[in-house]
């Protein structure tokens, strides 16, 4: 456990000292979401109807943006070799890295999402559901993304590969994330969607450390 906490605090400290890098994902999130009205026009009703989808899709892409660095820096400077050689199970290492990624990427996105909802004229009654759905969905994005980041270590142009590997796997999260919000806004019961988001989170919580650790081990070869 000390290794888990040590790695988590180190990654958070690294992110804190490179604040500019960490804020890029949020900036991208807000900026790219702000582009849609230029594409479809400023009509308030249309934007309000699009809001859940736009927020989720851009959040998905913003998470992708920061995934490449998740293991790459440690891979390049040799730190990853030492983590593989540490007595702590590698699965816990993957979990710690994914958690650090979520704290530095997912959490700021959740904080910025209400701002976008405001810009899109979304009904404020949907805000609690937006926060809840993103709080359940974005950790899965970090976890599944960790698999992709680990698999592409040492690949040529890994940064371009990651979206190709990770996006198809993220589709269920997108579907239920948007559906929960849509249901809440339309006065329907969002409970089943939220349950599915939770199930997806638990599933990726199990799958991602195992697959990620296997990927890291083979990256040492």
């Amino acid at each position: 456990m000390s290794g888990f906490l040590g790695l988590l605090t180190r990654d958070l400290r690294l992110a804190l000292r490179r604040r500019a890098d960490a804020s890029l994902a949020v900036l991208f999130f807000v900026l790219s979401a702000a582009l849609f009205p230029f594409g479809v026009g400023p009509e308030a009703n249309l934007l309000a109807r699009m809001a859940p989808g736009v927020i989720w899709v851009t959040a998905l892409l913003a998470v992708l943006l920061s995934l490449e660095r998740l293991f790459l820096a440690d891979y390049e400077d040799g730190s990853l070799e030492l983590m593989v050689l540490a007595p702590q199970p590698l699965e816990l290492t993957v979990l710690a890295k994914a958690l650090a990624h979520w704290l530095t990427t997912g959490l700021p996105l959740i904080a910025a999402a209400p701002l976008l909802a405001l810009l899109y004229n979304m009904d404020p009654a949907g805000l609690p559901m937006l926060i809840l759905a993103m709080a359940l969905g974005t950790p899965s994005l970090s976890l599944i993304g960790a698999i992709g980041a680990a698999l592409t270590l040492g690949a040529r142009r890994g940064g371009v590969l990651i979206p190709l590997l990770v996006l198809p796997l993220n589709i269920p999260i997108l579907i239920f994330g948007v559906a929960a919000l849509d249901a809440a806004l339309g006065g329907l019961n969002p409970r089943p969607h939220i349950m599915f988001l939770g199930a997806l989170f638990l599933g990726s919580l199990v799958l991602a450390p195992i697959a990620g650790a296997a990927a890291l081990r083979q990256a040492m070869e």
Binding site: R10, R13, L14, R17, D77, G78, L82, L85
Partner: peptide
């Protein structure tokens, strides 16, 4: 029991 020191120095620039 293994302590490995390879070619890479594992040093983080900002720490």
């Amino acid at each position: 029991r293994v302590r490995y020191v390879g070619h890479l120095d594992c040093i983080k620039a900002v720490l």
